[in-house]
Design a protein around this nucleic acid. Sequence first.
DNA 1: GGAAGGGTTTGACTTTTGTCACAGCGCATG
DNA 2: CATGCGCTGTGACAAAAGTCAAACCCTTCC
Lengths: 325, 325
Amino acid sequence: MPLRAADQIMHKAAWLYYSHGLRQDEVAQKLEISRASVAMYLRRARETGIVNITTSTELFTDDVLARELEDATGLKAVWIVPEDRQAMDPAAEMPVVAASVFLELINKGDRVGVAWGRTVYHIADVMPFADLRGVTVVQLCGNLGAPYSYRPDQCTTEIARRLNAEGINFYAPLVLSSERLAEELRGEPVIREQLDTIADCHLALYSVGGIEDDSHLVKCGALSAAEMHRLGEEGAAGVIAGQLIDHDGQWLNCAHNRRCISADLESMRAIRKRMMVVQEEAKFEPLVAALKGGFASHLIVTTSMARRVLERWGREGLGRIPSTD
Amino acid sequence: MPLRAADQIMHKAAWLYYSHGLRQDEVAQKLEISRASVAMYLRRARETGIVNITTSTELFTDDVLARELEDATGLKAVWIVPEDRQAMDPAAEMPVVAASVFLELINKGDRVGVAWGRTVYHIADVMPFADLRGVTVVQLCGNLGAPYSYRPDQCTTEIARRLNAEGINFYAPLVLSSERLAEELRGEPVIREQLDTIADCHLALYSVGGIEDDSHLVKCGALSAAEMHRLGEEGAAGVIAGQLIDHDGQWLNCAHNRRCISADLESMRAIRKRMMVVQEEAKFEPLVAALKGGFASHLIVTTSMARRVLERWGREGLGRIPSTD
DNA sequence: GGAAGGGTTTGACTTTTGTCACAGCGCATG
DNA sequence: CATGCGCTGTGACAAAAGTCAAACCCTTCC
């Protein structure tokens, strides 16, 4: 579809300003509009992704700790978000770093999977605008109404919107009340199809969930605190795309998992770039489980978390994690 | 290699300013330096490619003429540089468009070939700075000392420098005085090797040369005006990477070509994205020859040139050009 | 040891940009 | 055909960014 007249002017203004380096008043003169309008168009061009400003994330990979962690675990790349007071607050910094890394890892025409959770939503929230037509953003797990606004489909949609990419949502609930129904629904062509395309993703963005009483699954009502507690005793260590994994990162054969409609964990592992972002210190054990399970190839963590993982790897003599490459 | 202290500060400043949207004085305060220093670091960050600002080239593809030309010729994409007085001077605009398109077409890890000529040099001259480590820029043709400063190796080097990419130069002259010597030199392992990698390029950037008396090859002294004139009578229609092609875009079996050390034309055609940029109106016939020869998959031309090509294609009932895809 | 030379850093000043309240204009709607 | 609504455009002012000469390091070299 051809450009609308106003979009045409916006493109021209952006082009003259950013590519030719004219001043706003020169642009205004050339386009015969006021300088204020030029400023307005330029803002809009930035917010539409017509103009793209990206910053290298090298600052966060440039760290001996990152190198050590990569060497010890076999992760492809590690970004370390520092916690000293010279830096930004890590809670605010982590999503920004993650969003930048995400953009760095996307290639033209890629299919990317986006999972769910507070972390992912925060990343969506600071995702820069870009013009990535040709990219497809797919939702990795079923939907779950949340009391606050972090529904899986919202994460996908928001990211797709900002990237100007196509968003493909998953129109099924995350958990059903019976295994039979879940099984049947999984077999439905429209759902089946989407589940099947997940392994074709070039990049996945997710976090790992904890299994405490205040974990996301509990808060959203998918599981009661008591159930979660019991699952912990049965060996659950963390949550990946709504499903419980054990301490070795394997799918846990439990009622909840069997009733769950979400990316099958084998498909997730098959994705070449698995970008895992972990914010809270409390997610240490879940993270270790996820790493053992091979759910990450690219990792973004705080300094202290990186230290703890490195220490654990050394202490337990854990080797390099399985890689799909 | 870890970052130098000053680079670290530059990265931090760029990060806070561009990724977090702090003001320069806030950045200055955070980093405990003066605002003037922040401004200085930011400029440097832009000039180093740590910060990347790109503008969509959609403005130039959004044109019915571009669509028609793509459909008629089978070119993958066409960018049209307008000539109305509302726009910039096409002579200044074309290289800027070309540079942007070039950046748009490069992917991480690509090997890109760069040919030679005034046009290419102008493109290098306005190429934005970027941080494309992992990209390799290779020179597509042998060297030729020019009275002015457009030597093939300089084009390659300058582009590589701006992109922070690796530049691979070609240490051989473009034309030798005897066929025997050219043949022997082509057989030298170091040259052979470079010639062999050309077909592995993912992207090539070039223009097509004319065969008039004031053509580049003549001006640089590779051929005399008289020789060029004679070659024209023998069927030469244009110049690709220093070599003459006939009206169908085929390699011309002439003494000059046999004495030439440059990318073999089959290799050039094997490159998936062949980006051709043509500025001068006088290059119409050479362009048609180059198109027939399949030397372009992506084309950047002025409005009037696009019209002429389209008209010719229609008049002669020429089909879609051969494509390597 | 001291001078020269490279790069940083800064304060003070100028230029450029962002913003906002309000004016205009087209278009659908009652 | 008036009314109102959403969008685009503007002038004037405030805020932010760019610039430059001069000061200030270090390091090197005589």
